[in-house]
Computed example of a mutant assay.
Amino acid sequence: MKEFTFLQKELDTMREQGTFQELPKIESYQGPIVRMKGRDIIQLSSNNYLGLTSHPRLKKAAVDAAEQFGAGTGSVRTIAGTFTMHDELEKKLAAFKKTEAALVFQSGFTANQGILSSILTKDDIVISDELNHASIIDGIRLTKAGRKVYEHANMEDLEKILKKSMSYRNRLIVTDGVFSMDGDIAPLPDIVRLAEQYDAFVMVDDAHASGVLGENGRGTVHHFGLDGKVHIQVGTLSKAIGVLGGYAAGSKVLIDYLKHKGRPFLFSTSHPPAVTAACIEAVNVLLEEPALIKRLWDNTAYFKKGLENIGLPLIQSETPITPILIGDEAETCRFSATLFELGVFAQAIVFPTVPKGKACIRTIMTAEHTKQDLDKALDIIETGARKSGLL
């Protein structure tokens, strides 16, 4: 049988360069302290912003739904896989995001793929921020539309592209709300202003803003007071929401169209009852327990100040995502390994997740961390940095 020698060669090169990483394995629930390799480790790499993965209300909702409705649904949504609870979740998400309708996908990744691949034709153009998430990039690759990339958050460059794109039937500007690696927030008011000026649509991926920004965690659109002015909002149910999935929120026309043309929605089995019920309860928690978001931001401010006092180079971030910039990929992986030995799990982020030369340790705070957790993590990071020659 033919062997994958060409793939083995690439893997061997990664090992030689010190960038090959085994998948880290967690032996406990996803909390501020996790069990890994038989040890308790401070977790600084999870997207579990509000600690909802283990919230008692979500766990109970999941267990009750599994007991009543079973482990799975047995069908795609368009045949026999839509339960009343799926409809309830989508109505709740639409109300939460202040839109006419919403549609749940299997993940945030497939939501972006399904939207972009279905609504654009060769007569349209999609205009994308250069630091947009991989799911947006891959979604764009699935279209026959024209495509342009503007310099990150550069509104002059965006306007130049808009001016040159007026011959297309439609122009769609797509941006992350919060950029997942650097933690900065898109200049959404300026993007919306340009879109209105040049008659363009706007699509925002709020994966890292849902549950984090805006009243009750409604996202960047609400954070900037732009409800009703952004055509497509994408969110995840697997980060601050704490469960699994993604969704699109927008007009009823958009959602009805995606139900008929969005290929990941059409050809994937629907969310299991436990997942769906837990997502419904997560939205209820966001509305009823706002103290979680306040605690998240208090911890974020505290930890950022601590990192600044240590003196390591930081990528300037406006959100709980706080990257420590190292640059060299192998050195970043070694630093991550050193931190793990000392008691902190902070994963190295290297190419192709970030550009070459921009390797970093991306830390994320959660509402569940105590000040004692954060102080201990800061001490370990300083010790590890000195041990690694970074200070």
Rank of each mutant, 00 (worst) to 15 (best):
residue 1 M to G: 11
residue 3 E to W: 08
residue 11 L to Q: 13
residue 14 M to F: 15
residue 15 R to L: 08
residue 16 E to G: 12
residue 19 T to F: 05
residue 24 P to F: 02
residue 25 K to A: 11
residue 27 E to K: 03
residue 29 Y to P: 09
residue 34 V to G: 12
residue 36 M to P: 15
residue 37 K to T: 09
residue 42 I to R: 09
residue 43 Q to A: 15
residue 44 L to G: 11
residue 52 L to E: 07
residue 54 S to I: 06
residue 55 H to V: 06
residue 57 R to W: 00
residue 58 L to C: 05
residue 62 A to D: 02
residue 64 D to T: 11
residue 68 Q to D: 14
residue 72 G to H: 11
residue 76 V to D: 13
residue 76 V to Q: 10
residue 84 T to Q: 08
residue 97 K to L: 08
residue 100 E to G: 11
residue 101 A to E: 04
residue 104 V to Y: 03
residue 113 Q to C: 12
residue 117 S to G: 08
residue 117 S to M: 00
residue 123 D to V: 13
residue 124 D to G: 10
residue 125 I to E: 04
residue 129 D to A: 15
residue 129 D to S: 13
residue 134 A to S: 14
residue 139 G to S: 12
residue 139 G to Q: 01
residue 145 A to G: 13
residue 147 R to I: 08
residue 148 K to Y: 15
residue 149 V to L: 02
residue 149 V to M: 01
residue 150 Y to G: 09
residue 150 Y to N: 04
residue 154 N to I: 00
residue 155 M to S: 03
residue 162 L to H: 02
residue 164 K to Y: 13
residue 165 S to P: 02
residue 166 M to H: 09
residue 167 S to K: 13
residue 169 R to M: 07
residue 169 R to A: 14
residue 176 D to Y: 06
residue 178 V to G: 09
residue 180 S to F: 10
residue 182 D to S: 15
residue 183 G to Y: 06
residue 193 R to A: 15
residue 203 M to P: 10
residue 214 G to R: 00
residue 214 G to P: 05
residue 221 V to W: 03
residue 227 D to I: 09
residue 232 I to M: 07
residue 232 I to N: 05
residue 233 Q to N: 14
residue 237 L to N: 09
residue 245 G to H: 02
residue 246 G to H: 03
residue 249 A to D: 03
residue 252 K to Y: 01
residue 253 V to H: 08
residue 254 L to H: 06
residue 260 H to P: 09
residue 264 P to G: 15
residue 269 T to Y: 01
residue 270 S to T: 11
residue 274 A to M: 01
residue 287 L to D: 09
residue 297 W to H: 10
residue 301 A to H: 08
residue 304 K to V: 15
residue 310 I to R: 00
residue 319 T to D: 13
residue 319 T to E: 12
residue 319 T to G: 13
residue 321 I to K: 00
residue 324 I to R: 04
residue 328 D to L: 05
residue 329 E to Q: 03
residue 337 A to K: 00
residue 342 L to I: 10
residue 342 L to G: 10
residue 344 V to F: 04
residue 347 Q to D: 03
residue 360 C to P: 00
residue 361 I to C: 09
residue 363 T to W: 08
residue 366 T to V: 02
residue 367 A to H: 03
residue 373 D to C: 08
residue 374 L to R: 03
residue 378 L to C: 11
residue 380 I to P: 11
residue 384 G to C: 01
residue 385 A to C: 07
